[in-house]
Simulated assay, not measured.
Amino acid sequence: MSEQRTHDHRHPHSHGHGHGHGHGHGPEHATHPQGGAGEEFWDARYQETGRIWSGEANAMLVHEVSGLAPGRALDLGCGEGGDAVWLARLGWTVTGTDISGVALGRSAEHAADAGVADRVTLERHDLTESFPEGEFDLVSACFLHNYGDFPRDRVLRAAASAVAPGGTLLVVGHAGWAPWQEEREEAYFPTPQDVLAQLEPVTAGWEVLRAEETERVQNQPDGTPGTRTDNVVRLRRPA
């Protein structure tokens, strides 16, 4: 909902999205307003071009998840499927969600082209109204930001509630606007400690594996590399 790719590979989506995540699969991950931006908005956004994101996985997901044993994963705001396909290639069984049916169609094509369609299930959800059922060994929420009236804290608590015993919750977000972006007052960029506080009603007693800011290189609109700061929070639920 993507960086090294320069990534952020998705946008905040799923009404809450995230990569399509976070993805920038283009030069950068889009962080578009969530408030009032529903399925029609995101479908139109995707239809503007053949592909918005790079198709690669978010760098922070790769860094934080590579050492985990594959299991069931939930990708919130899967966009065009960069994270979901990467996880499936590692042996994970992935459920990807997005608010955009167009994005989900592209995710399905990406999974089929990669030969992992049998390990990727795609569901359309506006995360303010519905949420995937079941428990997951990994729940990933990358670049799921607050814009307008999007209740990110409530959605992240739902994400934590979906983590199976012994499982991992990964929350990645921007620490602020990139130096080359125009700042908008309606945006809210929580610190790692803010995220932990928002999750506390659900994650009390969980192990905090990482909660800090991290810098990465991302291409600017003119194609030259620039540096931006992200936040990463990774928690493990007790078995």
Results as ranks from 00 to 15, higher is better:
51 R>C: 03
11 H>R: 12
137 D>R: 00
135 E>I: 04
87 L>H: 03
193 Q>R: 06
90 L>I: 04
48 E>M: 11
225 P>V: 15
198 Q>P: 04
31 T>W: 12
6 T>P: 06
82 G>W: 00
99 I>T: 02
141 A>C: 12
154 R>K: 10
102 V>N: 09
163 V>C: 01
239 A>F: 02
14 S>A: 10
66 S>A: 15
73 A>W: 04
203 T>W: 09
41 F>C: 05
202 V>L: 10
90 L>M: 15
95 T>K: 00
177 W>R: 13
189 F>V: 03
181 Q>R: 08
185 E>P: 02
215 E>Q: 14
233 V>M: 01
31 T>A: 09
135 E>L: 10
151 P>R: 05
61 L>C: 00
14 S>C: 11
25 H>N: 10
209 L>Q: 07
165 P>W: 02
38 G>P: 04
146 N>H: 11
98 D>S: 02
154 R>Q: 10
30 A>L: 14
106 R>L: 03
97 T>N: 08
118 D>L: 11
74 L>E: 00
198 Q>I: 13
170 L>G: 06
239 A>M: 03
43 D>M: 04
150 F>E: 09
18 G>R: 11
1 M>K: 09
89 R>L: 14
43 D>Q: 03
64 E>V: 02
160 A>D: 00
170 L>S: 06
107 S>R: 06
56 E>K: 13
121 T>N: 07
228 R>F: 06
47 Q>L: 11
209 L>V: 01
3 E>Q: 15
178 A>M: 11
41 F>T: 04
226 G>A: 11
236 R>F: 04
43 D>K: 04
62 V>P: 02
211 A>L: 01
140 S>K: 06
206 W>Q: 09
21 H>L: 09
165 P>G: 02
136 F>P: 02
147 Y>K: 07
205 G>K: 03
122 L>T: 08
228 R>P: 00
78 C>M: 13
165 P>S: 00
93 T>G: 09
79 G>A: 13
147 Y>P: 12
189 F>N: 04
183 E>L: 10
56 E>T: 12
107 S>E: 05
32 H>Q: 15
113 D>L: 14
17 H>P: 14
57 A>D: 00
106 R>G: 05
100 S>C: 06
208 V>N: 10
4 Q>C: 07
35 G>M: 00
105 G>A: 14
163 V>Y: 03
222 D>G: 08
63 H>S: 10
84 A>C: 05
33 P>Y: 10
175 A>K: 06
85 V>H: 09
6 T>A: 13
143 F>I: 12
